[in-house]
Design a protein around this nucleic acid. Structure first.
Lengths: 249, 249
DNA sequence: TGAATATTTGCAATATTTTGCATGATAGAT
DNA sequence: ATCTATCATGCAAAATATTGCAAATATTCA
């Protein structure tokens, strides 16, 4: 049997079944597992399949590339994300809402950190798929087309059944006087439920959102424990928030 | 024996068998392996075959060059998707599992069809976000990194609370004798729950998956109402399934 | 035709590739 | 945290490739 032949057979098995076990293929082709392992490694290098522990999976299956490249204030959001992940520790149960800032946080979470991550955001969930040590639980429910997160009774109910250590609560508007606010009523409900489940609430927010208000209120500013912006914590814009008792990062 | 003659014979063997072993040809033509080696090298230079260690393979043999977006048998899957959406009607409640074929179905669902769509697949859900008239409900739960769908008690529990009109149940393997089967035990549980919730179960499956079996059984073949492949319904491959009472599309 | 020249072939020596196995390391599951 | 299956690595044996060379064969041209 030529190596080339084996490669073709392996690729075909992967294409048809999306995933294969190394030992199965070794039996099928009657060669040692080492050989198949080398084959798979080689095919992986050629980007013809993806090698995983115990076998291989097809490429087409496993990649969604959300190429949202034109995110507003991306560098600020990345800066915020960098600060945010410093709050994470092994073993924590975290809650990530949607929004582009939280997606940046999700991207930056170290793959080897052992976390349990709850999220109602499709985009955040997809970022988590590449991180084997993170157990991701998706909060099910009706999907809001605009915000790409789940909303409604089911989601809130599921949130009421969990207790999380820390919640990264993206928001539209944050103000010392009016607290956190949002323009979508359904999302407000979900975010309120999130605040209730979480011991610590972190608000990652670009400075532009500071001191703005929207139609529906989520909570008072005191409900937030930590405020993360792209600014230096000493920046005078942040002083009013510090004065209300928020930690500034 | 003329060189030209050998070349023709070698090319023909390659055409017929897709691959040849150098030693086989040397024996067949009763010349030294070195000669055949040189022949093959020359034919390789002329791009008439591909020389590999131990022999040669035909050029068409190895033409799988996936781009990152490439999905195996995409045209077949699109064909299946086209047939599948004919089953959809305004007002229905449908259930879409994961897998690349179901993603194609999701893409093809007309944006203006008023459906309620339940799914445990992140990819399917994302496809649905662009369709304003479709209410999408995500079945929450623990995310399986490999399959990109939610699994576990929460997902199964949520499934037990709904009744859907039609379920498009993607699967890894389908066989008249062994029924539907899958590679991953957790996914089997979810799919069983899906079958229970749904009045009608449709199995969209490329023909290559027919008559194959994986380690865990989902259900007997009779649990499927409609089988959709890229083949003509009259194709003889499908007859055993029709004989078992499945509708063929 | 016949000698000069070019090509092809087989062979031997050496190099490279492939494969399976042994070993210790690692990842995943329980 | 422990245990098992899987993985990476180095190694040696076998298979295959490469190279140079000389003999055999074919081709060219006088």
């Amino acid at each position: 049997m030529l190596k080339e032949e084996r490669h073709q057979i392996i690729l075909n098995e992967v294409r048809v079944h999306n995933r294969i076990l190394l030992t199965d293929i070794a039996n099928l082709l009657d060669v040692s597992a080492d050989t198949i392992r080398r084959d798979i490694k080689s095919l992986d290098n050629q980007k013809k399949l993806k090698k995983v522990h115990g076998g291989a999976v097809s490429l087409g299956f496993n990649n969604y590339n959300p190429t949202i490249e034109d995110i507003y204030a991306l560098s600020e959001k990345k800066m915020i994300a960098k600060k945010a992940i410093q709050l994470l520790k092994d073993g924590q149960v975290i809650l990530l809402t949607g929004g582009t800032t939280n997606i940046e946080i999700a991207k930056l979470i170290p793959a080897r950190l052992k976390l349990t991550c709850f999220t109602p955001s499709l985009q955040v969930a997809i970022q988590m798929l590449n991180k084997p040590d993170i157990e991701t639980v998706f909060i099910g429910g009706k999907l809001s087309n605009n915000s790409q997160i789940t909303i409604g009774g089911n989601a809130i109910n599921m949130l009421s059944q969990i207790k999380t250590d820390i919640c990264f609560l993206g928001t539209n508007s944050i103000s010392c006087i009016d607290g956190l606010s949002e323009f979508d009523w359904d999302i407000v409900q979900v975010k309120r439920a999130m605040i209730r489940t979480s011991s610590k609430v972190v608000s990652p927010s670009i400075s532009e959102k500071l001191d703005s208000t929207q139609r529906y209120k989520i909570c008072e500013i005191e409900a937030i424990d930590i405020l993360i912006t792209e600014l230096e914590p000493s920046n005078s814009l942040l002083k009013p928030y510090a004065d209300r008792g928020l930690s500034i990062l």
